[in-house]
Write a protein that binds this DNA or RNA. Structure first.
Lengths: 196, 196
DNA sequence: GTCTATAACTTGATAGAC
DNA sequence: GTCTATCAAGTTATAGAC
């Protein structure tokens, strides 16, 4: 299942281009038709080559999908991380929420890709712990206001994360939904909690 | 795709039993291996019969999965509805959160089934609007305290719903996570908001 | 180094035996 | 009324041509 994958440096120029093309095709496909709908033949078809040709560039179908997933996830996390670092620690949670909702709104296809990947997360992988980074950001913000305060950052981070997901998901099936405004309301909720 | 399904009253006793058995097998299967892993052959295998036999009791594979989905969903909504009705309107949101988290904790397999079904919700079905019932409960609670208040119930309901999902999901990959406590924290957060 | 032809298997569904 | 035998279409992956 898990063969060795070539290092980035060893890639031919055309290979690089093909991989990128295949990743984009896969992201679109997963976004449009879900995980199940992203078969090798359809990926190949969308890229204008054959199934077998896809399997030359990637060791397996799973590898293609994983690459597409990482592509979307990296884009998200790097942007959010940058936004948080640029912000004052006290406004860390707000920056996190704003940039995350913003990114997901601007890249709906990445969103679907990430959601699908999380849901179908094979049991083989580690338990995620997606809340941890946000919990640290909350802790930093908290210790800036009331130095000795230490609450349940984990649960708060989990709730916020779920809130973000739900807001973005809502926009997915009602494009007229104002996610920016919703994000501010979520931020307001968090501020209230942190001030208490 | 959508053939006529027999009315409940016309069902033989053995047919009733088989259907129930197949539904349970499907729920377990989806919970364990996800939507994709729930093929006709595996459903049949788990029930001790053949694929084709399954398709005698249900018109299609889709119908089996839909039945399993409805089974899980009905159990959830009926319990939550009862809990909310039994509670004072002012405590409606709390009752909603408690009973929902409680039910999902007690029935983890139903949980996975519902999540998978929501994610793979074919585009053919209506846009869900899962937040509506909760929004009404919030509105009722709000008008009891400050009769003229009318805020953004929709977004609040969406955030709460997402928070519940996230709490339950967390318990799914860390069984030691205390969802009851998390639920109380979420309730506290909502109370703060409604009091403001 | 890149891709075509082919294989081996699984899928959902039907027709018809009992 | 219940289920077995069979099918056509789809799936991923391999072997080997260019």
């Amino acid at each position: 299942m898990s063969r060795r994958e070539r290092a980035e440096s060893e890639l031919t120029l055309t290979e690089r281009a093909r991989r990128q093309q295949l990743i984009e095709a896969t992201v679109e496909l997963v976004a449009d038709r879900g995980y199940a709908g992203a078969s090798l033949s359809r990926i190949a078809e969308r890229a204008g080559i054959t199934k077998a040709a896809v399997l030359y560039h990637f060791p397996s179908k799973d590898a293609v999908v994983r690459a597409a997933h990482e592509h979307a996830l990296t884009a998200l996390t790097s942007q959010v991380a940058a936004a948080v670092e640029a912000a004052d620690p006290a406004h860390g949670p707000a920056a996190y929420i704003r940039s995350m909702v913003g990114h997901l709104r601007e890249h709906p296809r990445h969103t679907r890709m990430i959601i699908e990947a999380m849901t179908n997360e094979s049991a083989e992988r580690q338990p995620a712990e997606r809340w941890r980074p946000l919990a640290q950001i909350i802790e930093a913000a908290r210790s800036e206001r009331t130095p000795k305060a230490a609450g349940d950052e984990r649960t708060l981070a989990i709730i916020i994360g779920g809130g973000i997901d739900a807001i973005v998901a809502e926009q997915l099936n009602d494009p007229s939904y104002d996610t920016a405004e919703a994000a501010e309301e979520l931020i307001d909720l968090v501020q209230t909690k942190l001030s208490a």
